[in-house]
Amino acid sequence: MSDTYTLYNSTVMDHFMNPRNMGDLKDADGIGEVGAAACGDIMKISLKIKDGKIEDARFKTFGCGSAIASSSMATELIKGRTVEEAMSFSNQEVVSALGGLPPVKIHCSVLAEEALKAALEDYQKKRPSVPAPSRTTQLQPMAV
């Protein structure tokens, strides 16, 4: 075989083979873990948030190649965004940044959106009611 054929486009394959931001964040400010109703897979996104801005993001995924690529891309895209901006994040952005996904795999990118939103919700839940400009409280990762 001289050529390599791939199931997904080269961007998706790259993010699957060399995922960005894979792992957990030690002192995450928000952690979201969600499951795909369609196929039963699981994605977890951890966020480090400072002054209302996403400083760092990590993912862990139990799922197909497109789910791994979607979570890799989603964490890349949201780094540097404000919490407010991130609240309106949509899976469409992941799909276009990846250069498209097969129709049957769109739900894997929805999983990335949901995991991110769950992490943001977790962050907001944990946030002290009186927002302080610089927070010193150490937040415990959600027991999952």
Binding site: P19, M22, D24, E33, I42, M43, K44, K60, T61, F62, I68, V144
Partner: peptide, 8 residues
Amino acid sequence: GMSPMWDE
């Protein structure tokens, strides 16, 4: 290494 389930 990438799986949340393994970690959990």
